[in-house]
Simulated assay, not measured.
Amino acid sequence: MAAEAATGNERRATGDGGPVDPNRWALLTIDVQNDFVRADGPGTIAGTEALLPAMARAAAGFRTAGLPVFHLVRLYLPDGSNAERCRRASIAAGLRLVCPGSDGSQLHPTLAPPGGGVRLDERALLAGATQRVGPREWVLFKPRWGGFYATRLADELRALGVGTVAVVGANFPNCPRTTVYEASERDFDVVVVADAISRIYPRGLAECRDIGARVLDTGELLEALAALTGTAATAWPGG
């Protein structure tokens, strides 16, 4: 029965029922930064703070399983020159949103790597470098909505042998959805973690399924990882 349950989880997570290599999974967190999460942040996204526990559970599961975690972040220069076109004017006019070096630009503590004390190296990130913040955990700056646009993400994932990415973060209509489509375009299998992405809605999830993405909640994700890696989900924080 355990073997049958594991096979079912593999099929649910990958869609084809074929062999699954647990080392080929990675977690992508999208824009889980103080300015977007905190209720008093200048760019707060409604509903994101309430989903932090689910995001943290997903990250803890990947860390415990020894699987890669990539945090994708934004860093808007004060003149707005590296912001999306629709936001340049407001930032240039004085809106300080995820400004490099600010507290608001940092990863929210709930999702930050264990041990604390990690601050973003904005100079390196803005130059396109990958910042390592844990044993198998990194941060990348993304200059537009999607995590793959003009970044090293695809190369970093392929160098690690990753074939499946799970996506959590903020906020679905913009960056997570774009990242899902970009991942699919690059032939990665995609898992959308529905209860760990803010502003998600049924039609969007249906459209993700239509391009082959799998939609799981955090509990199902942890069960799938447990089946693939042999790690007991109950051993993971919050599991």
Score class of each variant (00 low, 15 high):
residue 3 A to K: 13
residue 7 T to H: 14
residue 8 G to T: 04
residue 8 G to L: 10
residue 12 R to D: 10
residue 13 A to M: 14
residue 15 G to M: 06
residue 16 D to Y: 08
residue 17 G to H: 01
residue 17 G to C: 00
residue 18 G to Q: 12
residue 22 P to F: 07
residue 24 R to Q: 13
residue 26 A to V: 02
residue 31 D to R: 09
residue 33 Q to I: 01
residue 36 F to P: 00
residue 42 P to Y: 10
residue 45 I to T: 13
residue 48 T to V: 12
residue 49 E to N: 11
residue 50 A to Q: 15
residue 58 A to D: 06
residue 61 G to L: 02
residue 65 A to H: 01
residue 76 Y to F: 15
residue 78 P to I: 07
residue 79 D to W: 11
residue 79 D to T: 06
residue 83 A to H: 07
residue 84 E to P: 02
residue 89 A to C: 02
residue 89 A to Y: 04
residue 90 S to L: 09
residue 90 S to C: 08
residue 91 I to H: 13
residue 91 I to Y: 12
residue 92 A to K: 08
residue 95 L to H: 13
residue 99 C to A: 15
residue 101 G to E: 05
residue 104 G to P: 01
residue 105 S to P: 01
residue 106 Q to L: 05
residue 111 L to V: 13
residue 112 A to G: 03
residue 118 V to W: 09
residue 121 D to H: 06
residue 124 A to C: 02
residue 125 L to M: 00
residue 131 Q to C: 04
residue 131 Q to W: 04
residue 132 R to E: 10
residue 133 V to H: 03
residue 134 G to Y: 01
residue 135 P to E: 13
residue 138 W to S: 14
residue 139 V to E: 02
residue 142 K to S: 06
residue 142 K to D: 03
residue 147 G to N: 07
residue 151 T to F: 05
residue 154 A to V: 04
residue 155 D to V: 03
residue 156 E to Y: 05
residue 157 L to C: 08
residue 168 V to I: 14
residue 168 V to N: 07
residue 169 G to C: 07
residue 170 A to L: 13
residue 173 P to W: 08
residue 174 N to E: 12
residue 175 C to E: 06
residue 176 P to C: 12
residue 179 T to Y: 03
residue 180 V to Y: 04
residue 181 Y to M: 13
residue 182 E to M: 08
residue 184 S to F: 14
residue 185 E to L: 11
residue 187 D to T: 02
residue 188 F to D: 02
residue 197 I to F: 09
residue 197 I to C: 12
residue 200 I to R: 07
residue 204 G to H: 01
residue 205 L to G: 04
residue 205 L to K: 04
residue 206 A to Y: 09
residue 206 A to V: 06
residue 210 D to A: 15
residue 213 A to V: 03
residue 213 A to Y: 10
residue 216 L to C: 10
residue 220 E to Y: 05
residue 221 L to N: 11
residue 224 A to M: 11
residue 225 L to H: 10
residue 228 L to K: 13
residue 228 L to F: 15
residue 228 L to A: 15
residue 230 G to N: 05
residue 232 A to N: 10
residue 232 A to Q: 11
